[in-house]
Design a protein around this nucleic acid. Sequence first.
DNA 1: ATGAAAGCTTACGTCTTATGTAAATCACCC
DNA 2: GGGTGATTTACATAAGACGTAAGCTTTCAT
Lengths: 247, 247
Amino acid sequence: METIVPSDAIGWMPSVDQGGASVHNAVVSTLGGRILGGEYAPGAALPREDDLCAMLGVSRTSVREAVKVLSAKGLVEARRRAGVRVLPRDNWRLLDPVVLGWHPAIQDDEELVSGLLEARRIFEPAAAELAARRATAADLAEIERAVDGMRDNIPNDLNAVCQADLAFHKGVIAASHNVVLKGLVGMLEAALRATFLVTNPLMEAQSRALSAHVAVLEAIRVRDTAGARAAMNRLLDIAADDLHAKG
Amino acid sequence: METIVPSDAIGWMPSVDQGGASVHNAVVSTLGGRILGGEYAPGAALPREDDLCAMLGVSRTSVREAVKVLSAKGLVEARRRAGVRVLPRDNWRLLDPVVLGWHPAIQDDEELVSGLLEARRIFEPAAAELAARRATAADLAEIERAVDGMRDNIPNDLNAVCQADLAFHKGVIAASHNVVLKGLVGMLEAALRATFLVTNPLMEAQSRALSAHVAVLEAIRVRDTAGARAAMNRLLDIAADDLHAKG
DNA sequence: ATGAAAGCTTACGTCTTATGTAAATCACCC
DNA sequence: GGGTGATTTACATAAGACGTAAGCTTTCAT
């Protein structure tokens, strides 16, 4: 079924700044950060609505809307008369990039960092294999542009390299054309950001990484499914090495 | 790491009924269902807040809280003066069980069903392998209880079998002790529910499935990582067969 | 006639106040 | 001593007012 999009919908890209300047977003970020940071532990109760209003200097409306958002992310649950309590960590939507963005020091969360890398080693090789099978010309162009972006900015603009690296991995996942994998790009984004915070950007490591990226791209281009999987595995080996060496 | 829970938090399990009786939950479900059902397509604008209030017969407060929840799930974005618009599908948090629950006919969404199964074939064998490496005695007991639940209810109580089947897969993922995989149980739950809706419950198929489940359990018990992966692959082969035969 | 700037309009954002409701607590009666 | 009912508490809902920014229109100067 083709989805019909009104012509006036062009240009309606979702805004990027999730921590926008609005009052209720500020409250969401504040409370989310405190929960992710352990200030409000699972099982603990948040202050009463009225107290939160006084503490944060905002109206009850804003606090309530913020609690609704946190509740939608699985971080808290509000019950009549009993207050708002932090839910067990298993309920947190940790794959939601917004939630991960509230983590005050994601790179110090050992379980999370290793869990993210482990997950990447599970699904990224599979995504590369699917991409080798299904990538369209546009998908390939997108991945190639990311590789070019890495090459062009080594070793000058480190930030641009990280951004291109991220675009590469997002491109591969998009090329897999699998809805579930596409749902994980947010998680991947956070994982890479955490990695960039930890790994010392040595030029040698960067060039090694670049050649690994090129290998994945070429395997996808020639529809070599096994090769794409193997190349992505090598790429992740390198990433894991860097993480262990410098973490 | 064991999470510390205040003593007064005992009994604070998250409530299961997400489509609860509250007004704003009703609005969320209604609008979420319409969006997932395609009534409001990506790029389209929802009616104005005031109009929604009139249409649904609720206050603006409830509508606004509902929009906040939908926004947190990535389904819509509200902008000043411009209204509330449905975001592109790639932004939807489809891995969120609540979002999947809004899908009016998940088993008819071909791309989604096949994508879910494909994702399961990526994650679940890996989860089984990790479980074989890390499962605690409690994890094993949980998985064994699920297998017993399947065996005891074949072929009488089909519903109980499905529930035990789900518990089995959740148990394996929990035993993997990977934070990302644990974030996918909601997705898995929806995938299995969709599968149960499609596959005709033949007794022969059930007994085949049961023996495959037992094989996974035994491999995990004896810490046979490769065997656990292989057994889970066989189990998913059977599931895929059933899906193709009956879908 | 064209284009930019100023102002107007609109619809979401925020705050306030009032009232409803369920659940926890406590008191009272059996 | 235990159970039932009144009370209290804190979240849930509603309604109204005002703020604000984004889109639209008008106007004026080039």
